[in-house]
Write a protein that binds this DNA or RNA. Structure first.
Lengths: 230, 230
DNA sequence: TCCCTTATACTAACATGTTAGTTGACGACT
DNA sequence: AGTCGTCAACTAACATGTTAGTATAAGGGA
């Protein structure tokens, strides 16, 4: 018995279309709906027990975000990766991360320093325990904290929206036992620069850190060619 | 006789909802629909001669972009400015512009240098002629060219989408006879750094240039308080 | 006079019926 | 046998009917 791959709308909040949107988005980002999957409105309606209106609105938003490609009058598909898009997403992410760390470096409070230090300590513990899922989440949290410390409430969401394709592609990467330790060193370099209020060092440390992702994604184009555009 | 403030959908391309979206977006960005304007779906349907479905989809997208605020079951309004949002938009724009100019500085071709030089020359001519509207467009074009020269096709649109609130707020600013000359100097400083392939100089020139906007927007909160959130 | 209640009108949100464009398969003609 | 034209089935797109939540204004009580 195959469980429905969509979260039930009952578990979410907001308007019906909002919940359908969240449900579909989650399924796409988690690769439960891998690139190329055809999405039929009728099927979604049946699975979620809603009518076509909220589904149409949800798909319109997903289309605007680039997560699905609509072929008029014909079909809707989960969008495939293209290396160009991924490079672009990485560029945008780097731009934001650098701007954020520059600002935080100048304005950081002792409490923020403490929180970042605690986060990195947690990363170390999780790697020692070989809890790589926990490490992944704590790594994400490190970057989210930096976004929040800019003082701009919407910045974390903007980062998430420009990083959509990166988030999906990351799900394909094989776990690499040696990478987390490198990651932690890079995070420490960033934190040190923030502590020293050294903007130039912070920028370059972040540039170096965010530059690590693309080389690890490149091989995916061959190992998972079915998910990429020709 | 008041002409309809919306562009007719006949003049646009794409699906009906796409055209409705473009029409509404244009009206909002150009301040034909100023902040606080209530948008009734029924009225839009009548004015554009379409049914409620495409209007609903268009408003869903505008809502996701933050151009309209939907009050559930009650009303939809053109979103008001908040100085926080504007500061945030400025931060994001600066992040992108800096990242772009850094990349272009490293990779620029002779053709790109020539195109940028030509653009600035045009700016000078337009200011001499006191054609400030033309200058505004050429100024915009200068920045769009930089985005295009990154080689990432989607970057110009991302810039536009993070700059939505800035674009609207700019419509309120009074023309300032002295500002264009300063702007040109800043553009020239950026171009010189690009020419010299001096990444640090390019970054700081762009940082300085993009930092000029917020001080000019700040007074609007008092002079146009009706457009701002309390 | 002021506040609370209540009824009514209005709106967005949702459901469903209808249209039109696309795709793929089948059959006829070359 | 291969190719082109036609037709049937399916899908998104659009139109319209229905529901439910919100705001406003009128009326009654303190």
């Amino acid at each position: 018995m195959t469980a429905s791959s969509l979260n039930k709308v009952e578990n979410l909040s907001g308007s019906l279309s909002q919940r359908v949107y969240q449900s579909l988005r989650e399924a796409i980002l988690s690769m439960q709906y891998p690139p190329g999957t055809v999405i039929r409105k009728g099927a979604i309606c049946d699975q979620l027990g809603v009518s076509r209106s909220p589904v149409a609105e949800a798909l319109a938003r997903l289309s605007a975000e680039g997560l699905v490609d609509v072929i008029p009058q014909s079909a809707t598909k989960v969008s495939c990766f293209s290396m160009d898009e991924i490079r672009e997403a990485s560029f945008l992410r780097q731009a934001l991360e650098i701007a954020a760390v520059e600002k935080v470096t100048q304005e950081r409070t002792p409490e923020q320093l403490a929180a970042l230090t605690r986060n990195i300590r947690m990363q170390e513990l999780l790697v020692e325990d070989k809890d790589f899922v926990g490490f992944y989440e704590t790594d994400e949290e490190f970057h989210t904290m930096l976004m929040n410390f800019t003082g701009f409430n919407g910045v974390p969401q903007v980062l998430a929206s420009v990083s959509l394709h990166l988030t999906r592609a990351r799900m394909l990467m094989l776990p690499d036992e040696s990478r987390p330790k490198e990651t932690i060193k890079e995070h420490q370099a960033i934190l040190t620069a923030i502590k020293n209020q050294d903007v130039d060092a912070a920028r370059e440390a972040m540039r170096s850190h965010t530059g690590q992702l693309i080389p690890r994604i490149l091989p995916l184009e061959e190992s998972h060619a079915e998910y990429f555009k020709p």
